[in-house]
Structure formats: C-alpha cells, structure tokens
Amino acid sequence: MAEKKLGQQTVKFNNPPSIISTASIAGIKEGEGPLRDYYDMVLKDDLFGEESWEKAESKLSRETVLLSLSKANLTPDKIDYLFAGDLLNQIISSSFSARELKIPFFGLYGACSTMTESLSMASMVIDGGYADYAVATTSSHFCSAERQYRFPLEYGTQRPPTAQWTVTGSGAAVLAKNGNGPYVKFVTTGRVMDFGVKDANNMGAAMVPAAADTILRHFKDTGLSPKDYDLIATGDLGELGGELIKDVVAKEGYDMGSKYTDCGIEVYDTEKQIDVNAGGSGCGCSAITFCGYIYDQLVKKNLGRVLLVSTGALLSPTSSLQGESIPGIAHAVTIEMG
C-alpha cells in the first residue's frame, strides 16, 4: 500500500501542513447571519462594484485570496500553487481570478465540496514536498448561481421549504510547510454516491449518502470516532439533510450527537431570516464558515480537532432536464491545533 495511505480512502500526513492564515468575504445576507463577526469583510453591495454577478464573484474570489495572503505577510509570487473552484460553468470565477493573481493554478470542480477538495489537494502537495506554500479557495454567489441553475432573479417563484439559499461569499486558506497550526492531519477523499434523489430543490438529501459514506469511511480508516472530535461539520446539507445524516451515521454505530453541525445551518438564522428555508448552500457556505468561524475557534483553542466535510451536488441544469438523479460527493479533512 502507498506509504502515506491509511485504509481505503484516507491519507495521513507525516508532516502535517499548517494553515497559516484564512480570509473570508461574505455577502449582505450572510453578513446579517449569526457568524457575521467572524468574516473579514461583509459586502455592502452584492455586485461588489462590478457590472455583472459573474464579475462580482470573480472579484470576490480574487480579493479573498489577496486578503488571506496579506494576513500571512505573503505575496502571490511566493505561492507555489493555487487550488480553486466554483459553481459556474467552466469555473470562470476561479480561472478569471487566477488570471489576475498569476499563481500557478489548478482549477477544481467539486460543486459545493470544493473547500475541502482544495484543502485536500493543497495539503497533499505540501506534504509531498512539492510546495512550501499553497492556497486553497472557493467562492459562490447567490445571483450567479440562481441564474445558472434556476430562474432569473426577478422571476416570481416560490421556494419550497426544502430549498436552500446559495451563499454569497468566498473563503481562502493559506497552507504552509512550516507554521504554528492549525494542522491538516488527515484527508478522506469521497466517492460519488447517488441514491436516486431527483429533486433539485432538495439537494441536502441528495448529498447525504456521499457525506455519510465519507464520514463512515473516515472513522473506519483512521480508527477515530465522534468522541475524538470537538466538531464534525458538513458543508451544506441544510436542516433536512442534517437530520438525515445523523440518523444514517448513527445506524452504523457512530453517534455524532451534539458534535455534529452543518455549515448551511450555522451560516443563517433559519428562524429569523426569511426565505433561506432549509439553510445555506454553495461553495461559499462551508468556505466562509470554515475560514471565518471554525478557523478562529481553532486558533483560539476553543476547538481542538475538527472534521470538515464539504458536500457537493454534482448536477447540472442539463442533467436535471434529462431526468438524471443527483450524484453527491463529500471530502473530509481533519484539522487540529495540537
């Protein structure tokens, strides 16, 4: 077996890369949410001074990376690799952001799982000895996602209660070979799972099988269990998916109980904020929650060990129209201070 592999799907880092800084920029609605004090910046205008939502998202991605670098006292030319992805067709937000940043760039597509996908890749590249510094980032924008996946903004529709609200925001993490932590300890790479959910308004449920598969695989590969963690956070399963996954994982003998949360539930106040319905979704959901709140808590040592499991729904408008069900993916990353 490969030297650094652990079990079937997990990688254990011999020299755990350190996340030396993070940055998060959030949209207006997210800035009204419960985690607002943890974001580096909250937009006053969802267009971010640009002409289109796509340009705004690309600027969001670029500014977040630059902010994370300046917080680590680094410049783009010091960075060996940029791992980035987003939801838009041909991941234009990320590649157009990379066009300005001039950092060697790997474009990723993992839908909303991109935060942990990019963290996984960045960590492996550093531990493998191919880089001193790497940046992992992703972004999403409610308006650009809405027009690509659903309806024009001004079109009058009702959102069913299971629908989730795409987070406007971007998070970036700078990983380094040497640093004072928190460290990326394990990476469990997910498999694409599909149990036949077809309702694009119920993506949380569609991603549960993938998230459950990855979490269970992670526990089996590492021998860890929920009690070894202070927090187990999935990306954007929402309220419905959050309930489901607790049940599914508990059935296999792992009770996550109060250790479990979902970034999509944390990012909004689903009681008070109208129309977010079942919670947040999108690449930005786990990105701003991790780069804002969770990272802060790790640095302050309020959290010791965290399992971040970003979840992605790998559908496209075309596949939905052709009657395909929604495949899901989830990648888990263990981050700890110790």
Binding site: T162, G196, V197, N202, A205, P209, L244, D247, V248
Partner: peptide
Amino acid sequence: ISNDFSKMVNEKN
C-alpha cells in the same frame, strides 16, 4: 441504507 433512504427522505420532508 439505500433501501431505507427514500423512505427516510420522505419522512423528513
């Protein structure tokens, strides 16, 4: 899980 899944989804819906 895949057998029970759609039932679980509908219950939570």
